[in-house]
Amino acid sequence: MYDGSIAGFYCCVFESVYSRQIPCDIFVSHQAPYTLLPQKLITTDSQKAARVYRSIPLKISQQALRLVEVVFLSCMKQKELALLRFLLLAYRCNAKIMQMLAHPLVAPLLAAERHIRNESHLLRGFIRFADYDGILAASITPKNFVLPLIANHFITRFSDEDFLIFDKTHHAALTYQNRKKNFISVKEIEFSPASENENYYQALWKQFYNTVAIEARDNPKCRMTQVPKRYWENMTEMKDLL
């Protein structure tokens, strides 16, 4: 069991390497199931975490570090265990591990990485902001924890704006105010009703959206493939179609 942070996970790796034990699963402490199997609580120690963090680019590769960091944010089942077993293998194979795309311990991680990268790519387009007195706010319900991956895109794009992206699934939000970014943990955010001006622009957008479709080419199945239904609830122009 660990505290759910990436530093905590690195401490699990440390523990496993030096105790020469491989756990049968790794849990975030407040989500751990009741079990008769022996459990071990790994407390987060920043020095141990830093040693593991430094060892990855040193003994494996920079590319592997990126993979570990991204997969850690993904919604892959038992990702901690998968990452630990990957790292134990990688410490033996070194940089070559990143060529072993077909290895049973590597392939699932690459698939998880594709999944989260793909979701964050889609969300860069599908996020819809609404203007609340000059502050732009949006809600998302992603499967993966994509906020850290999309933050920079929106910060450079809207550098002079103040904005907020609320991740309902993971109860977290990215705020950007006075050119400062912050990740905060929140259960719920109440948005005040939209202003008249905001409603006007939403209506204009829906007008545009409905006009550009060419009736003779109607193809709802293709649209569904491109924008899976789970994104619709947060999109201005799709909400009404649900």
Partner: peptide
């Protein structure tokens, strides 16, 4: 980006898909 409003991505970005799937 970094100043003013906006940036451009080399790969482009789709924001919505109309009823004809475009």
């Amino acid at each position: 980006g970094n100043r003013g409003l906006g940036s451009a991505l080399a790969a482009g970005c789709c924001h919505a898909f109309s009823a004809d799937g475009r």
